[in-house]
Computed example of a mutant assay.
Amino acid sequence: MQDKQTLFDYLYKTLHEQIENGRFPYGSKLPSRSHLCETYNVGMRTVKDVLMRLKIEGYIQTQERKPTIVIYDSLHTHKDFEVQYVLEHKSSIVAVYETLASLMPKIFALSIQNCSDDFLKHWQKRLNRAKNNNDIGARKQINIHFLHDILTQSNNQLFKSLFLVLNSIHTVLFFLKKKIFFNCFVHTRNFQIFFGLAMLY
């Protein structure tokens, strides 16, 4: 697996593309979690995280002890309804995002305390290189990978879930042309790392 691509991103992009391309059409069942683990050589936690994100984004429906069902309609028959819903709940969506945006820097600062020196050295080099990259999309991906890796080190599923929700909502805010920025400066042991989420949104 390439360094720039996490197992989460790999599985998410694969399933996302297969759903949108009709490999798993509306109403079909996704393979079981254990089957996904074996097929894509990823852990159960990665599978659960990916399925949670797809559920949040409205691609699948999950229920306890039942197959995962694809609810994404490639014909976009419900597109107008979805747009209307977002517009009607604009203030609530923004309020949720602002709340998460205020919490996440503290969560990152707490999570990074569990990171090893080697982990921090690795990411400090990557972040420094990213500053000189003129490709905004590439810089965004580096930041997302960094933040996801920090939360993975925390071994706290709630923290990762909040980050997934935050990333899902940012697409809605882009549609609403609403930008919210926050930055975080972390000092841990011999490392000082600054990262900005303004680039993401």
Rank of each mutant, 00 (worst) to 15 (best):
R53H: 09
Q113D: 06
L127N: 05
E64Q: 14
Q63N: 12
F163K: 03
G58H: 04
T14D: 02
I144Y: 12
E38R: 02
K106F: 14
K13V: 10
N155H: 06
H78F: 15
Q84K: 11
E88Q: 12
R23F: 15
Y26L: 15
I142R: 05
V86Y: 12
V165T: 10
G27R: 00
L54K: 04
N167L: 15
K179T: 11
Y201D: 09
A198Q: 09
H122W: 06
N143E: 08
E38A: 10
P25M: 11
Y26A: 10
K131G: 03
P31N: 03
T6F: 11
L173D: 03
K125A: 14
M52Y: 10
D80S: 13
E98K: 10
R65E: 08
V96G: 00
Y10Q: 08
N21Y: 08
F194V: 12
Q153D: 03
V94D: 06
F8T: 01
R129Y: 15
A109V: 07
S34W: 02
F175A: 05
S34N: 03
Q84M: 14
T62F: 11
Y12F: 12
G43N: 07
W123M: 08
Y12R: 01
A130K: 01
N143F: 14
L147S: 13
V186T: 09
R189W: 06
H148P: 00
R126H: 03
M52C: 10
N128Q: 13
Y59R: 03
F185T: 03
N128H: 07
F182K: 07
L176F: 01
V70M: 02
E88V: 12
Q63I: 08
R129S: 14
T6S: 14
A130D: 00
Y97V: 03
I142A: 14
F24R: 01
